[in-house]
Design a protein around this nucleic acid. Sequence first.
DNA 1: GTAACGCTTCGATCATGATCGAAATGTTCA
DNA 2: TGAACATTTCGATCATGATCGAAGCGTTAC
Lengths: 229, 229
Amino acid sequence: MQTIAPELAELAALIADPGRASILSRLMDGRAQTASELARVACVTPQTASWHLSRLVERALLRVERRGPRRFYRLATPLVAQMLEGMMTVAAIDPHPARPPPRIDPEMRRARTCYDHLAGELGVAVTDAMREHGHLHLDPEAGELTASGRAFLRDLGIDLRAPARSRRLLCRPCLDWSERRPHLAGRAGAAVADLALQQDWIRRRPQGRSVEITETGLVAFRDLFDARI
Amino acid sequence: MQTIAPELAELAALIADPGRASILSRLMDGRAQTASELARVACVTPQTASWHLSRLVERALLRVERRGPRRFYRLATPLVAQMLEGMMTVAAIDPHPARPPPRIDPEMRRARTCYDHLAGELGVAVTDAMREHGHLHLDPEAGELTASGRAFLRDLGIDLRAPARSRRLLCRPCLDWSERRPHLAGRAGAAVADLALQQDWIRRRPQGRSVEITETGLVAFRDLFDARI
DNA sequence: GTAACGCTTCGATCATGATCGAAATGTTCA
DNA sequence: TGAACATTTCGATCATGATCGAAGCGTTAC
């Protein structure tokens, strides 16, 4: 029986190294990072990181781009991010509920970006608030933005029209591995995250993919979204 | 920065062994299999398979159930199946498009079950036919069954009412790794597969998770669904 | 040109974990 | 109780691949 299993194992082996897993996790915010930064994240020497990175590029999980003497690495396609999302969801399930759950960095748990949308407590709080106001229906498997939701986002200055040739879904759920609850993703989720960055409600931290909620942001999320954050 | 990365690597390592990948792939149809059958699938001795299986159960990817002297293993939750779907989708992407694509077992490619719904050429053909008849809208990220689609399935004798307490989505896409196109999943997809098995349109092969399309089935899929199969 | 810097390649070492034979365990049935 | 069978445990062996020091390559800036 010839199956996809060998390719599956090969792919998994690529993610099975803690250094490479850290690198992939770091790149989940969709931005590009230098080889040095990724070496630091993976806690290995530059030469070891280089070896890992070349394997990831060779297998087309990452794309590399040269800018001067630096090389910037990023996830090759959103499909890779979606795969990692799924794996993290399962990875976050504690096989031994008796033992204390894996410690998660509080900043990560509080607020972060997940490829292009908000995640962590912030992402879930915004999603919950929108649901309670009837802006949104969200299931673990799918989501729907209501007429009221469209109006709400439009009033915030968000343009939800899809770019030409985009087949991206307007509204989809993404299972949060730290909160273990679905939050808003898709074009709508990305638009909200864009707005928040643009309005300085959140700021990307220089390292890691957690974000800082500003004072203005706290007020905005509470007043505009009615989020319990 | 404390993250989920170590757990991600640990999880991936579990899937990174060809034997375990074969076992997981075999269990993707959602049914339970004995340790012996899984040893055969993984091409290892029973004692090696036993070692692999105990690791998978320990990490809560599989559940085990004893019936007499046999032990039946199955995926612990649909979440695991969904994760594997995502990984297979990426695994099926050829990193070197110049080289010949990975050979896939023709029976697998033709028709198989994917957890609880149809996949392979058959799954995609049925989905395409339903789309062309306006029964279905399906995006890579989400799907919707139209009024005409509901009527169509009802006429086939399918009851789409959700069981109490079920939060499963009626209609969702599942990306097919052999066809690289989305096909119908969710409650509607499962209902179609159930109907097909019940009407003897398809038969599970004794080994593997590919299914055989019967003569009756070929006629039914063509006449009732208008599928090009 | 040359120095500085980022990154990669090479080579040797070392640790992890997959494997199977042999033997033990556990279940059913008579 | 004993025989048959499925599965697991134990123990020893072996292969893969992660690691980093040293050296090399390529780009930029002066």
